[in-house]
Design a protein around this nucleic acid. Structure first.
Lengths: 212, 212
DNA sequence: TAGATTGTTAATCGATTAACAATC
DNA sequence: TAGATTGTTAATCGATTAACAATC
């Protein structure tokens, strides 16, 4: 979709809009103004209107936004119905949890296999998804049109595996490792989750009492 | 430490500097210029010098930066030796993994207890840390000077528990729930980990092929 | 000393906020 | 119609990049 470029600051706010609108729907609300939504979310009304207008005019002057329709519009923009074929690599503690914890279907993904180099795990299931041998990753990706890989493996393993995945058609990575995928592969989409970095940031804040 | 305010864009980069400098040390390197570090990290030399100079002049003209000393300086700034007394709440799948996965001592924290409302878990250990009854949280925090809480519980539970924790002296939260702590408690330090939001951002990127 | 590279000031770029005309 | 609220342009603010004098 060669749509116009939208800055990542805006994109990062979309899931939160989506979530909030979901709450409002549950509460049975029908319409909301940018001013009121801003108040509830702790943003400015200006920012909300600017953000949304990157994608089109979803509101109506004098009325505001219809909550249900805006919810669905943002869902469409995010691609929550995309069902991208996805694999998870690394069935260790973290991988196992990430496999169980996330509602992939609701977020645009279809998790179809888990891989681990430990042969003894092969054939086991996590949440109805089979664990397979790491040897089969490349063939599996090519045969099944896998688009996204979730990396729950250490740096070295990620560095070694990534080129193979890219060569097999993977274009998106949810990366829990410290390996910097975009350095070697600037064209694939990457979303990093660096838990350690997040925690150290908290340490700084507590130490320096960032109390605003 | 009422040091001068440093923007969160800068703070978020510190853990990555720290990590990179660690790698360089392992490789036995002694000095590095901002230009070379920038190249390796995919940043600009200007940015690195600006970032560091928020905290002091750690370099030397004509020479660059001593890697080991810069590593320790950044460690000090982040507070990796703070050992803040910390509890984790919610020993479900995610909580269990977060307890196991993170090297708290190296990041400035001292994880001393895990709490869960499920009484049957009480007395069990995760990684040498005892699981306790959720009923005892407040007393435990007060008695042990707990400064930080890791919330691996759902929205409603987080909303209910947070005021009690704050009243018991907790000033920092590593928050895996969707409850917005800073809305009610603007003065505590919060670092959110929103896995779902991160994943949806990836979905957008893949769908729109942000290929740059 | 001459060369290299910092620390820091100035210029640019991008993101947020404010303002207001368009319009439901 | 009058009031409300959007979509959008202009103004502001902050963060990044460029430039260069200071200095090791």
């Amino acid at each position: 979709m060669g749509s116009k470029y939208v800055s990542s600051s805006v994109i990062k706010r979309l899931p939160r809009y989506y979530r909030f609108l979901g709450y409002l729907m549950e509460d049975g609300m029908v319409r909301i103004s940018s001013r009121e939504l801003a108040e509830r979310m702790g943003l400015s009304a200006s920012q909300i209107r600017q953000d949304l207008n990157n994608f089109g005019g979803f509101g109506q002057q004098g009325y505001g936004y219809n909550i249900e329709s805006l919810y669905h519009e943002i869902g469409k923009i995010l691609g929550v119905d995309s069902g991208f074929k996805t694999i998870l690599v690394g069935a260790g503690n973290l991988g196992h949890t990430i496999a169980l914890q996330i509602e992939y279907e609701k977020r645009g993904f279809d998790l179809i296999a888990i891989f681990d180099k430990k042969e003894s795990l092969s054939g086991q299931m996590i949440n109805g998804i089979p664990i397979r041998s790491a040897n089969d990753i490349e063939d599996f990706c090519k045969d099944n049109g896998v688009k996204v890989a979730i990396l729950c493996i250490p740096y070295e393993a990620a560095k070694e595996l990534t080129p193979k995945l890219v060569a097999s058609g993977v274009v998106g990575f949810w990366n829990f490792s410290h390996y910097n995928i975009n350095e070697e592969f600037p064209r694939v989409s990457v979303e990093n989750v660096h838990l350690n970095d997040s925690l150290m940031t908290l340490c700084y804040q507590v130490l320096h009492e960032t109390t605003l």
